[in-house]
Write a protein that binds this DNA or RNA. Structure first.
Length: 879
RNA sequence: GGUCGCUUAGCUCAGUUGGGAGAGCGCCUGCCUUACAAGCAGGAUGUCGCAGGUUCAAGUCCUGCAGUGACCACCA
């Protein structure tokens, strides 16, 4: 093995080998229980960012873990056509050539879009691969593939036939730049410093004026009434009269409605039903006419009379000027409000009246809520269920038609007889059989196809073997920001089309931020490219960094020092493997995959200690990972590997390897534990574990298909306790050496004066020599009157005393003992108080009471010993 | 306005059912001890945001407050 692991050299080769051997392929005819994850398909416009890296790492950890546990594991990958995002990019690229999409026409445009898909779709896929993800590439899919397009059409037709999809004229969000409708979920609300203007209309047949407040004066061209609160004494007399919009000279009714807030503004509201969602409701309620005053590019249309042709904001200025000129402008004020913009292009949206396709959502709400409340759908962390529920409770019908070209064209055909035929491969009108039919020009919202992803990718609407075997999927891993875009829609679509929930558990990952806690963004230029981290530190270091010391659903900061620390950890494991390789003995080759655990009974105490600790580790982390506590599990593995296996077991093994009687079992244990560490690490850091596994294990061809360590029924608690005690004593000795400024190279003499446990210390002599820097070890029975150097430092242990000779600084030792004495007195005091408390005795758990009682005994013992020793020193000093 | 987070060592963060506060980085001291200087050994540092409450026992549960962040909904 090389001195250091070089990710750049190995990772690509390893991944190619995995793919070539088809290790990630899931068999739909397998007898084994299946475990399935549908990968949230990245957009073909996208490039790999830290969010993907985290999201994919979490999925890969779960997938590899389940695969090792023996499940028939499928992680199904793919990409999303990302209708509007992709179309915008292509329009942009056309613009650079001086062309528009209309110049090309629909067919040529789509051809170009498919070229884009071929080029950039594979780019993101390859970037994902560099993360080492164990997805089944045989089943890779794309939201606009033939099969998935059929699924989309089938879904649309089903929903239409059941009356859940309808076409209707409603107020929708319109993006004047993209010239398409968008759904509620795609509207982003931004804080805005606006102005509110007070203007007035004259009241017909009187000399009075009514003053109202508005932030969008241009919409008054579409006003169809003024409204006041029925309880408002100020305006009662005007109700039923007419107000006059100047310049366009339209008379509009003055009506009353509870909706009007008497406190806000003047208490008079202008009502523009065609351009405001609240006004729209009032318009319907009172049967007001709805006048659309905007063209699709947000210029004023012919209904705006003299203002027609002007841009919406230029019209606004002109209207204000004109109101001033006739003295119907009252005042203007600053106002903090929020404006709705299109999340893709940041253009300020306009509510417009349009005829569009909608999905009626009302009937889907209950099944979606029931799924959660019955416990069949779970969120991790659970609090995210609130976002899910809250969205459902306030749901509106889903506008699914988009005035775009790149996407699934709506399968609705219009006949000259005015009948609409909805279906696949339609050639003639279902009503009059006319062949003169025209397909709807619009495409579907990109989320309409994503909503089907978990089952469409498995073959739905066909009842394929894949669908039977792998659906419903088990887990969805995604970001909380798309709970309502995607999660809700998958749930209701799946219930509706398959009768089943699409998945059982939803895991929400947090946001990866920069080192200052800011969101990584292109405009700030603070993004850290995962590919650069991989290039420099390797995929494994990156993956570790994203999961270690973090918890689910929490945002985290990404900083390079953390990557380095994790790289160092991987280096540590690499070197542990090198140590084993260097000590391998050709005459002692074992296949640890065939371990018969009864052999461990004959192993040494220290072997049993590490075996027992490892067994407990497996127990804990298996539970942790099953509960999706990925950070917790890796933290424990990290700690075990470095602080137990490397720092203690390997160090001790160096002594045991010199002993011919212990050598074989020691080598066995070294290898057994290392390989099992590799296994529990493998879901997190797949590459380095594979590389070492192949180098050391030499029996199985890959760690990918190896089995997760099983919890063994051996119990070496006693041995574990013995070695923990020895570790404590060694630590105390090291501590004293350091306190007394004993040089590292200086050897000391240690004398154990014992009441019992002679053999334990006899067996551990070499450990003390190498780990505590001793050259002479004496073991004496306490009954044989001790003859110890009075200047020796004494350590009090349970089974007796430890004396360190050749240490001179008695003053320091007295200080140390006095400090320790203070600590013990404090502890004794605390334990005594607890035990004197009748409430504690009657209410606390039994084992806790026993623990405190044991403490009192031990501490009193130690205290006596310390006092005795202090007396001895003081006597010596007085001599 | 509503909902949900966060506040723990100098920094970044863990902390599973309430039962003596942890990690990584940084800092201090000493070591090139042939697996690893990307390392080894030792060390220092915390009224767990504030105030109440429940409990024998609270970083952990409840209430309020303060700071901070996210999301949702918005009054024209």
């Amino acid at each position: 093995m090389e001195k250091n692991f070089e990710p750049k050299k190995s990772e690509k080769k390893i991944y190619e080998n995995w793919i070539e051997k088809d290790y990630f392929h899931a068999d739909s005819n397998s007898e084994k229980e299946s475990f399935t994850i549908s990968m949230p398909p990245p957009n073909i416009t996208g490039e790999l960012h830290m969010g993907h890296a985290l999201n994919l790492t979490l999925q890969d950890i779960l997938t590899r873990f389940k695969r090792m546990q023996g499940y028939n594991t499928l992680w199904l990958p793919g990409t999303d056509h990302a209708s509007i995002s992709t179309e915008l990019k292509i329009v942009d690229s056309l613009k650079k050539e001086g062309k528009t999409k209309q110049d090309l026409g629909r067919d040529k445009f789509l051809k170009r879009a498919w070229e884009w898909k071929e080029k950039y779709g594979s780019l993101i896929v390859n970037q994902c691969k560099s993360l080492g993800i164990s997805t089944d590439w045989n089943r890779e899919n794309f939201t606009m593939s033939k099969e998935l397009s059929l699924a989309v059409e089938t879904s649309f037709i089903n929903l239409y036939k059941k009356g859940y999809i309808y076409k209707g004229e409603k107020l929708i969000n319109w993006c004047p730049k993209c010239k398409t409708t968008i759904s509620d979920a795609e509207v982003e609300h931004l804080e805005n410093n606006a102005k509110i203007y007070y203007l007035k209309y004259s009241v017909a047949g009187t000399k009075d004026f009514l003053t109202f407040a508005t932030t969008r004066p241009e919409t008054l061209l579409g006003d169809t009434s003024l409204a006041v609160n029925p309880k408002d004494e100020r305006y009662k007399k005007y109700i039923g009269k007419k107000a006059i919009i100047p310049f366009i000279n339209r008379e509009i009714p003055i009506l009353s409605d509870e909706y009007v807030d008497m406190e806000f503004g003047t208490g008079v509201v202008k009502i523009t039903p065609a351009h405001d969602f609240n006004d729209y409701e009032i318009g319907i309620k009172h049967g007001l006419p709805m006048i659309n005053i905007l063209n699709d590019d947000a210029t004023i249309n012919e209904n705006g009379k003299t203002y027609s042709g002007l841009d919406r904001y230029i019209a606004r200025e002109k209207i204000l000027q004109d109101f001033k000129s006739i003295n119907q402008f009252v005042l203007e004020k600053d106002l903090q409000n929020s404006i709705g913009v299109h999340e893709k292009c940041e253009t300020i949206l306009e509510p417009l009246l349009k005829t569009q396709w909608f999905v009626k959502m009302k009937d889907f709400v209950k099944p979606c809520i029931d799924a959660y409340e019955s416990g069949n759908l779970n969120f991790y962390p659970q609090r995210f269920s609130k976002i899910y529920l809250n969205w459902l409770e306030n749901i509106h019908d889903w506008c699914i038609s988009r005035q775009l070209w790149w996407g699934h064209r709506i399968p609705a055909y219009y006949c000259e007889c005015s009948h609409i035929t909805v279906g696949t491969n339609i050639t003639d009108c279902e009503k009059c059989n006319s062949k003169n039919i025209k397909q709807d020009e619009d495409v579907l919202d990109t989320w309409f196809s994503s909503a089907l992803w978990p089952f469409s990718t498995l073959g739905w609407p066909e009842q394929t073997q894949d669908l039977k075997t792998f659906f419903p999927t088990n887990v969805l891993v995604t970001g909380p920001d798309i709970i309502f875009f995607w999660v809700v829609r998958m749930v209701f679509s799946s219930i509706e089309h398959t009768g089943k929930l699409p998945f059982k558990d939803v895991i929400l990952n947090g946001i990866v931020r920069d080192e200052n806690g800011r969101k990584m963004s292109k405009s700030l230029g603070n993004g850290i490219n995962p590919l650069e981290i991989i290039e420099k530190y390797g995929t494994d270091s990156l993956r570790l960094t994203l999961v270690i010391g973090s918890s689910l659903g929490m945002d985290q900061r990404f900083y390079i020092e953390k990557v380095e620390a994790n790289r160092n950890f991987l280096n540590k494991i690499w070197n542990a493997a090198r140590f084993i390789e260097m000590n391998q003995d050709k005459n002692l080759e074992f296949d640890i995959s065939k371990t018969d655990f009864s052999i461990f009974e004959k192993f040494s105490t220290v072997d049993k200690w590490i075996l027992n600790k490892f067994n407990n580790l497996v127990k804990e982390i298996t539970t942790n990972i099953e509960n999706y506590d990925f950070g917790m599990a890796i933290g424990k593995i990290y700690d075990f590997t470095w602080n137990e296996y490397c720092d203690w077991y390997i160090e001790i093994s160096k002594q045991n390897l010199k002993n011919e009687n212990l050598k074989e079992n020691t080598l066995y244990t070294l290898k057994y534990i290392l390989i099992n560490i590799l296994k529990v690490l493998h879901p997190y850091v797949p590459f380095i574990t594979e590389e070492i596994f192949i180098n050391i294990q030499k029996v199985e061809p890959t760690i990918v298909l190896s089995s997760w360590p099983k919890i063994q029924n051996y119990n070496f608690e006693k041995e574990e306790q013995i070695i923990e005690n020895i570790k404590d004593i060694i630590k105390k000795i090291r501590n004293i050496r350091h306190d007394m400024n004993v040089e590292q190279s200086k050897k000391i003499s240690i004398t154990f004066v014992l009441e019992n446990n002679f053999s334990i210390f006899e067996d551990s002599k070499e450990y003390f020599k190498s780990l505590a820097g001793a050259n002479r070890i004496n073991i004496i029975d306490i009954k044989n009157n001790k003859n110890i150097d009075k200047n020796a430092v004494e350590i009090q242990i349970e089974s007796g005393f430890v004396y360190l000779e050749n240490l001179v600084d008695i003053e320091k030792e007295i200080q140390r003992l006095q400090k320790e004495k203070q600590n013990i007195i404090k502890e004794l005091d605390r334990a005594t108080k607890m035990l004197n408390n009748p409430e504690f005795l009657s209410k606390a758990k039994e084992f806790l009471i026993e623990k405190e009682k044991a403490k009192i005994i031990n501490f009193n013992d130690l205290l006596n010993k310390i006092n005795y020793r202090l007396d001895t020193y003081l006597e010596t000093e007085n001599d």
